[in-house]
């Protein structure tokens, strides 16, 4: 029947139109804008981006943040997920508490941690009462890059681990109990059970979580901006500065395209590395 043949297309049409209008069109516009250099030639905006004094710094900071934050929060989320799995009482309440940061916007999360870590913040007050420091001490300026980096990483981990946790909790629930029980009967230690049964079975969830978090981590901005201002430049922050302060939309677009390329590349790498071999699928 013709209706049934067209029905699927009809059903995905609204979503496709939505994506085309609100994602594809602006995407093409951004790419076009990034090559629109006026007098500077086809790659003029990219040259300006590469030649900018904050480019290398922001590229390095962004990658270092991704490489620090994502692995740490994957481990943390797996740990939290396993704890929840074992829990008999109060599981819902704890899950609810642990996912609260999901509802906190990234800028707000940055401001929360700024209140804790700034000169006259709660952390310094605590250290002061312990007698470690004798007055307000600055951790978040360009002369203290290490503590500033740690502060941003902590805020990011605090804010966005919950997303990974939710995916992993869902994944853990899909693993049939029989697998674990069978492993125990064959005398597997808890560690063996984790590495040989749970983690492999969790692979699809881990893959989604990794892709989601890595792509989002490359877009890290608001929390960094709240905590460090421009003392710790990141790629999206530079795009923002070129757009807002320097009012050069073309260079900002070049940054946007670069971030997109990096995100796509990271996704491709994950898909390849974590691919399930066809023969392994039952």
């Amino acid at each position: 029947m013709p209706t049934s043949r067209w029905l699927p297309y009809l059903l995905i049409a609204p979503a496709s139109v939505f994506l085309a209008v609100f994602f594809a069109v602006p995407l093409v516009q951004t790419i076009v804008l990034s090559f629109d250099g006026g007098t500077a030639g086809f790659f003029g905006n990219y040259q300006r981006m590469l030649g900018d004094l904050n480019f290398n710094v922001s590229l390095r900071n962004t990658f270092m943040l991704v490489l620090t934050v994502v692995p740490l929060q994957m481990m943390l989320a797996i740990g939290m997920g396993l704890m929840l799995q074992k829990m008999q009482r109060g599981r819902d309440v704890v899950l609810w508490i642990w996912t609260i940061p999901l509802g906190v916007s990234d800028l707000a999360a940055g401001l929360v941690w700024l209140a804790i870590l700034q000169n006259t913040g709660y952390l310094n007050t605590f250290l002061f009462h312990l007698g470690v420091i004798d007055g307000p001490t600055a951790w978040l300026n360009s002369e203290t890059p290490v503590t500033l980096f740690i502060a941003v990483a902590v805020a990011e981990i605090w804010r966005s681990t919950a997303v990974v946790l939710v995916i992993i909790v869902a994944g853990l629930q899909l693993i049939p109990k029989e697998f674990g029980e069978a492993a125990e009967i064959f005398g597997a230690s808890p560690w063996q059970k984790l590495t040989r049964v749970t983690l492999p079975m969790l692979k699809p969830s881990l893959q989604s979580a990794l892709i989601l978090r890595t792509v989002l981590a490359f877009e890290v901005f608001a929390a960094v901006y709240a905590i460090g201002g421009r003392n710790i430049p990141v790629l999206v922050g530079e795009a923002y500065v070129w757009q807002r302060d320097n009012q050069n939309y073309s260079v900002a677009a070049a940054y946007a395209v670069l971030i997109m390329v990096i995100s796509l590349a990271a996704t491709a790498v994950y898909l390849r590395l974590l691919r399930e071999k066809p023969e392994a699928r039952a």
Partner: peptide, 15 residues
């Protein structure tokens, strides 16, 4: 579990 709960809740409480 308690420690992780504190880690999540303390910053929100302070602000």
């Amino acid at each position: 579990v308690m420690l992780l709960c504190v880690w999540v809740l303390l910053p929100i409480g302070l602000i």
